[in-house]
Each structure stands twice: as structure tokens, then as C-alpha cells.
Amino acid sequence: MGEAIVITSGKGGVGKTTTSANIGTSLALMDKKVCLIDTDIGLRNLDVIMGLENRIIYDIVDVIQGRCKLQQALIKDKRFDYLSLLPAAQTSDKSAVTTEGMKEIVSELKQEYDYIIIDCPAGIEQGFQNAIAGADRAIVVTTPENSSVRDADRIIGLIEKEDMIEPPRLIINRIRNHMMKNGDMLDIDDIVQLLAIDLIGIVADDEEMIKAANKGEPISLSPNFKASISYRNIARRILGETVPLQSLEEEKGFMQKVKAFFKI
């Protein structure tokens, strides 16, 4: 019996989809059976970032409205045997999916897969309700910006009312170490203190991430980048490994190396 994890944030553009793709890929790298679900109906992106756009035949709305079987709509990843994607529809809107339909799909997928990663749309409306409906756990993504933290706070409040196994966990994305050090960005400790949930990982802002996304290759595939290691660490923590929160120190250490390299 697998576990469904929803990746959410409230605010748009903080990196939910990238995070979903990379956590899914990292889990697949560790030989887990993973299924990604894109619930951003009408604005699907996950297939693009995974580089699977051209393989879509059926989508989640087709499954819910009974035009195809679930297995037909699942797209197998080109790199891993046990990584699948259930794409969102591009032509319908979010009302085409119901919470009941979502729950059914997720529980069916849980029979076969170890992890179901649900990519949540921005906002707190129907799309969000659908995405969290079938989830057992939640990961909230935020960036070190006031507006994004504010929305994360709101989302955490909404998730806490749901019936989840544990309180949501936090990823702080797009960290620019030099800005954080100068106090131009919110501090990690301040964010964690305000949101009062467990930190599951931090990811540095990396130009490589944009390149990777454009190529349709999740960055976690190539171990040479710091962001890739961050995602892999997050995946290990999801598996229950205690990768000590040294990860924070690690990141800093790495950043210092980079700084030293550029003689800043």
C-alpha cells in the first residue's frame, strides 16, 4: 500500500511543479515505484518538465469521466520503468475533477505504487481541494519572500483541518545564500519559526534548474548540482532516513565554496 504526498504552496510560481518532478525522480532513483499526478487542470506543466508532453493520449479528466481506464492514461517515464505520470487535461477547467474522483484514482494507484506525488495548482479553490483530497501527507513549498510565506501559512492552516497522517512539512525553495546572509531575504530560521512546521529540505536557487526544466530533464537526474543533492536528500527524508538537518549546513558549506571560487 503506497502513500500519497501532495506538493502545495498557495502562491504560484514558487516551484511546486519542479519540486514534484524532482522528488518523484529522486524517489524513482532509489528504486521506488512512483506515480506523479498533475492536478493543475487547464494549465498543465508537469509533463513538460518531465519531458513527456508528446506522449500524452488520455488525461486525468478522461479517467474521471470514464473515457478511458486509469492504466491507459498513465504515461511511463522514458528513463525509469516505475515512474509514471498522470497528466492533467489542458482543455477542461478545474471543475471537471471532483474530490471523490480524485480519491478513487489515488486509492487505486496506491495499490500499485509506493509513492503518489500530487502536484497541486496554485490557489485555495476547487483545484487545491481536489489535490489534497486523496493525500496522506503534504509538503508545503515556499520561497524566502514575505508573500510566499504568508500564503504558505494560510495553506498550512487549511491542511491542518484535513485528515492527514502528520502535519505538513516544509521545503524552502530558491534560496540565495548571499541575500539571506545580508538580511535581504527572510532567514530560514525565521520562516521555520513563523510557520512552526518541520523543515524537510531547502533548495538553493540554481540557474541549472531553468536549463533542466527547459530540456525536460529533472535536475535530480544529474548529481553534479547542489539543487540535485537537495532533492535527493528530501527524497531520503521522505523514505524515513534521518539525513541530519546538517543538510542546512551542507548547503551553506557548498555555497561558501562557490563564493570562495568567485572570490566574493
Binding site: 504568508r150 494560510r154 498550512i156 492552516g157 512552526a196
Partner: peptide, 25 residues
């Protein structure tokens, strides 16, 4: 509890809150 953004906590009488009131709460 933590009163998070968008949440409203209302009581009759005096209120002793053990926890934070976050921005927007």
C-alpha cells in the same frame, strides 16, 4: 494553537492564547 493567516479565533470573555498569531491571522 497557532492562528495562521486567514484564520479567525473569536471567544467570549477573556482569551489566553498559547501560541502565535501569524501575519494575516
Amino acid at each position: 494553537q497557532i492562528v495562521r493567516s486567514g484564520q479567525v479565533l473569536e471567544t467570549k470573555g477573556d482569551l489566553l492564547l498559547i501560541g502565535d498569531v501569524n501575519p494575516g491571522g
